[in-house]
Every structure is written in C-alpha cells, then in structure tokens.
Simulated scan of single mutants.
Amino acid sequence: MELVKTTGKFYDIQGFSVHDGPGIRLTLFMKGCPLRCPWCHSPESQAFETELNWMEIKCMGVEACGNCIEACPQGAITYGKKKVRAATQEEITLIHVDRDKCNNCGVCETVCTPKALYLCGKDHTVEEIMDRVRRDVPFFKTSGGGVTLSGGECLSQPAFLTEVLKRCKEEGIHTAVDTTGFARWESFEKILPYTDLFLYDLKNMDSEKHRKVVGVPNEVILENARKIAKAGGKFQIRIPVIPRFNDTTEDFQAYGEFIKSLGSAVEVVQLLPYHSMGTVKWERLQRDAPVLEALPPSEEKMERLKDQLVEMGLPVIIH
C-alpha cells in the first residue's frame, strides 16, 4: 500500500491557531504520547487508539435517555452515580463506563441523544490532511503562518508525520513540530529537512524526577535537542511551569545553562504557567490516573522566573 493511502490518527484539528508558532496556523493534533504528565491539559491525546469519551455535563441521565446501556454490546455501560441538575434541581442517574469491558466500538455514540458519548481519535489520509491544509493557505500568506504538527507526541507516528511535512514544504508552507523530544533520533533526522521550527518541551532537567513524575527519563530528550541544534534546526523552547515540580530558582538555573548550550538555535523561550482547565477532560475518560490540581503560579512568580533567564542572556516570553 502506498504511503499516501495510509492513515494518521488525530484527536483534533484546529484552524486559526495563534499559539503554536508564528502567524495564523493550522494545528494538527496527532494521537498517542509516551509521557504521562499529571497536569496534561489534553489527556485524550495520550492513548494511541481511538477511545470513548463521556461528557458528564451533556448527559441527560438514564431516566430521560439510557439508550447507551441497552446498546452497548460489551455490557460496559451501567447505572452510575446520582446527580442533581443545577438548572432544574431534579435528581438524575448518570451512567458509568467500565473501561475494562469497553472496546471503544462506538455503538453507544450512535444512540446517545445528547452526544455526551463520543469517540476521540479519527484516521485521515495524507491527501485528506493536505486538502484541509490548503483551505487555510490565504491565512498563512497574510500572517506569516503555516502548519504545526502537535500531539500527543506527533513523532510517535513518524512515517505519516514525515510525509505531511514533506508535502507542506513542497507547497511552500511554513512547518512547525510541537514535540516532547522523547522519540528516536532517526525520526527527528528524517523530518529535519522539512521542519522550519521545533516547539520543544523541557519539563525538568533532573532525569530521575522527570521519570518519577512523567514516566520517562530525560536523557533522550536533551540529547535530541543537542543534535537538532548541531544540525541547524531552530527552536522555540517551551517550559511548562508546574508548582512543586520545576518552579524553583535552582530548576531555572539548570534550564538556563542547558538552553544557552544550544546557542543560536534557540529563537525564544516560552514560559507556560500551569492552569487547571484540562482537569475536566480527565473526567471524560473516567481514567484512574494521578491528576495534578494546584494553584497556578502568580504573575509575580512568573516574572521572577522570566527575569532569571533574561539575566542569563536568553530571549524569554510568558505565553
């Protein structure tokens, strides 16, 4: 089968994006990630397979609907907890999805009247993606924008990613890759000729702490960054500022020293303050996973951390 006929799996496609690289962009969010960050604002991106989501706020309750319970061929959907609807003060019974039984077949999605149940993860061919890309070319041209491949970890689907980037470059479209850095160097090497900019996450400079919290060590991430810089790649380094994980003066001293070692490859360092807006998405997956809930860092703290890196000679913005 030809590569252009194979598919990549995406959990979202977002037009008119202004936070994922220069100008107005089309951001393509690919599914699957080897990291397990407890603050992840898109937990639906982590699994490599298409999976069922349930949006509690949309559920009418089994008294008014309940179609999914009878329709599920696996018997994975049953009566769940009670809830009082704020608007009407009536008590309703929500559903519960047994994730051990659910095989993400999607039958329940087809009978869910309020669309509270939905499958996350859709396969697209390269041609389908390029057709979508071309619709936004006028925005790219007027704003200096382009296409950003993100995730999850888009390098977990390397062949498909490479082909999309190659096709974009053939059509004169600026490309960016938003990555955790945790991938085989061979995959990075293949996309280097077709990638104008890497949006590169650095979560913690201490490898053991990195492993304990997000599930993987950081040596591969740091080494890939060094190799990209040596090969002439360009970076926007992204640091998610997470309370009690990487927000100390010592943490940022280590960040600064490493980023400076990458030299002129680094165009800007972006500090991304933790926020809790993704917490509700974990509930949609009903997944038994550690989820960070903390107060976002103050503006004063963010400015102090920014100033620390600026004093080390780095270009820094708070995103």
Rank of each mutant, 00 (worst) to 15 (best):
D201E: 05
T6H: 13
F198H: 12
A225G: 12
V107L: 12
K81T: 13
V268P: 00
E127H: 14
Q74P: 01
K234D: 01
V84S: 07
T110H: 02
F198K: 11
R134I: 07
E2T: 14
E163C: 09
C112M: 07
P22R: 06
K141W: 01
S207P: 04
G181D: 07
E153L: 07
S156D: 04
P296R: 00
V177L: 15
S207Y: 04
D307F: 08
D307Q: 15
V268I: 13
V216H: 03
I95P: 01
L272E: 11
G15Y: 09
F252T: 10
S42G: 09
V266R: 08
K58S: 07
C108Q: 08
A231I: 12
C168M: 11
S17C: 15
V316T: 08
C108F: 03
K281F: 01
L292P: 02
Q253K: 12
E63H: 10
C37T: 09
V268F: 00
I92W: 06
V18M: 11
D12F: 04
C72E: 10
S42Q: 13
H275Y: 07
G21V: 09
G172T: 06
T88C: 06
A159V: 09
G263P: 07
E49D: 12
W54N: 06
Y200W: 01
I239G: 02
G80N: 05
T78F: 00
I173H: 11
C72N: 04
Y274D: 00
N224E: 14
T7H: 01
G15M: 00
L272Y: 09
C65R: 03
S298T: 15
G278W: 04
T27L: 01
E283Y: 11
Q308M: 13
A294G: 07
E257S: 05
L199S: 08
Q270K: 14
N246R: 08
V268Y: 07
S17H: 00
L94I: 06
V266I: 11
L94P: 03
S261Y: 05
